[in-house]
Amino acid sequence: MKKRTVYAWGVAILSFVVLMIVTPAIPQSEAYHDFADQREFLGIPNTLNVVSNFPFLVIGLIGLVLCYYGDYFKFSLQGELWGWTCFYIGVAAVAIGSSYYHLKPNDARLVWDRLPMTIAFTSIIAIFIIERIDERKGTISIIPLLLAGIVSILYWRFFDDLRPYAMVQFLPCIAIPVMAILLPPMYTHSTYWLWAAGFYLLAKVEEAADKVIYDWTHHIVSGHTLKHLCAAMVPVFLTLMLAKRTVEPERQSLLKTWKISWTKFRKTDGTVESDGTVESYTCTYSTVPVVESQ
């Protein structure tokens, strides 16, 4: 193992230990289970919060089938196939685990809601490492990352402390957009990562505004139901990305692409010369006599 890799793991572990020491424990609030929309239709408790998980099952199964349907996704690396397989298994399992939880919300059932999500989160991190950093390191990291996610759930359940789970959930939300922008991609259509991140961010906002949205919509739909639907758009966009993308012949980061596009735009609108200098224009105005009508 290279020294740089050892240093990276050392810094990560040290940062985690320091964070656990300097921050207080975050217990699971019982109020979390008190969702705004608790209506029952057709004998199904919390109906909309349950059935709104169905899209996860659909897109999870579709993605899983397409991973092995000939060469539909055109994976270049074996590690990619394993990573995306874990991701789609996690997505499909979200539908089952979250539905089970929302039928009777409590801490014991919440484990099965969060466990599939950690599988999806950690798989995505491994996929990014495979595609943008190193295939071997990324492939090897799949199992440790999955285990880290599972351990974070168990730690919360046994010690009533959400800090490790919060890191597993929210660090990818920061790391993935940053890596998508800064690291050169192996494939085209990298902007789909940002669309996916945007929908997930919107989902978290809707989750936080559960009761507010329920009141705004005059008790038609709650924020948590909309959160499920928005979160399901994440695998939808990633599946579209996999279907459309091709190998990038000239690997350059989104940041560099945006810089080049901005430079070209400034040149075409006449504000920048080819050598980068700004054109200046001088305007002169003449006085026009005005004759008043008699």
Rank of each mutant, 00 (worst) to 15 (best):
M167K: 05
Y192S: 06
R163V: 10
I44H: 07
F158L: 12
F237S: 02
V247P: 02
A232F: 06
L146H: 03
E273N: 15
V221L: 10
I150V: 14
P235K: 03
D107I: 02
A31K: 14
R136C: 06
L66F: 10
L229V: 09
Y165I: 06
S261H: 08
D37N: 11
A166V: 11
I176D: 01
H219M: 06
A8E: 05
N53R: 06
T268L: 14
L14E: 11
L194N: 03
I150K: 07
L240V: 14
H228F: 10
S15M: 08
S123Q: 01
T282A: 14
I133Y: 12
E250V: 14
I119R: 00
K264D: 15
A231C: 10
R39N: 12
E207H: 02
I62P: 00
G70I: 02
H228P: 02
F73S: 11
R266E: 14
S29D: 15
K264Y: 09
R4N: 13
W216F: 12
A8P: 01
L162C: 12
T257G: 10
V290D: 04
V91M: 03
N53W: 01
F265G: 14
T85R: 03
Y214N: 03
Q28G: 09
T5E: 15
Y192K: 01
N53V: 02
Y165K: 04
V50G: 01
L182E: 03
I96P: 06
M179C: 14
E248Q: 15
Y88H: 12
V221F: 04
F265E: 12
L242I: 06
V178H: 03
A243D: 11
S123V: 00
R132T: 07
D275I: 02
A36I: 08
W262H: 13
F199I: 08
L182S: 07
N49D: 13
P55C: 08
Y101A: 04
F265Y: 15
K74D: 14
Q28K: 04
A108I: 09
V50M: 05
F41I: 08
T225P: 02
V151H: 08
H219P: 03
P45C: 11
G97C: 07
T225W: 01
L201F: 13
L81P: 05
D210K: 00
F128S: 00
V205R: 00
R109M: 10
A232M: 07
P185T: 09
A166D: 06
G70S: 07
Q28E: 13
V17E: 12
A108V: 11
P289V: 03
Y187A: 06
K74W: 01
S141F: 01
K3N: 15
V221T: 07
G270A: 06
Y88C: 02
F75M: 08
T122A: 01
N53Y: 05
S253I: 11
V91E: 01
V168M: 07
R114T: 02
Y187H: 05
Q169E: 14
V247T: 11
F237K: 00
W84S: 02
D134H: 12
Y88T: 03
K74F: 03
K137S: 12
C230R: 00
I133N: 04
Y214A: 03
